[in-house]
Write a protein that binds this DNA or RNA. Structure first.
Lengths: 109, 109
DNA sequence: CCCACTATTCAGTGTTACTATCTACTGGTA
DNA sequence: TACCAGTAGATAGTAACACTGAATAGTGGG
């Protein structure tokens, strides 16, 4: 979609991935494929892996290495309690921003 | 509000300011005050001025220097045709992202 | 044996918002 | 007079994040 969405994704992509992980554990390659399918066609794989490492280092997810039938072992990420808390705060912040924008869009002062 | 909203604002703040300018021309100090009032309490003034310079250089706004009764002259920004186009594309991109997030929030697949 | 697919990592880049500070002009007040 | 608060804008340096492009590694098929 271009540069615009790239900038908007900053801070948001993290929430998107965490929200996905709140549904079920998943590994990087899988998450990338899901994003592509969902219309985020141009999100680079490298971006997702970097993000996963970041949220792991912040202690928002637990990681388990699982052997794969095809290719190298998968790193399966699952949202932990701290991640849940963070996700809730993400939704609060998103709501705030989203509300402001909606108001602004309707010629709101 | 903290780091979360800071990251989310990347790419969005620009749209917010452009949307405001689509209503009427305004100058930096005024925009900052309006943002504060609207709940974006911790947006630094420097951030707004830097953003205005950016959108000016991209040709999205016209600028006029207007003397002020109090303090140095104001730089009044108004959205031009190119800015209008850009704003529309901003809203399209925002809608896309916003829809995805809404879907995801309702336990969407 | 090489290629396609799966799966992850990493170095280097660009954009954006933040912090902190500086300049500059007006009016009020000690 | 000297200083300060309020108005108005500019700028240098920093941190965070997504992107590009390439490398590595394992499996199975032509």
């Amino acid at each position: 979609m271009g540069k615009l969405v790239t900038e908007m994704l900053k801070g948001t992509l993290e929430g998107i991935v965490l929200a996905f992980l709140s549904g079920r554990p998943a590994y990087g390659y899988e998450i990338t494929a899901w994003l592509r399918e969902k219309g985020f066609a141009d999100i680079a794989e490298g971006t997702v892996y970097a993000l996963l490492i970041r949220i792991e280092q912040r202690g928002l997810v637990d990681v388990e290495k699982v052997p794969s039938e095809k290719g190298p072992p998968r790193k399966v990420y699952s949202l932990n309690a701290q991640g849940q808390d963070y996700l809730e705060e993400f939704w609060r912040t998103w709501s705030f921003l989203s509300d402001r924008l909606a108001q602004l869009r309707e010629g709101g002062r």
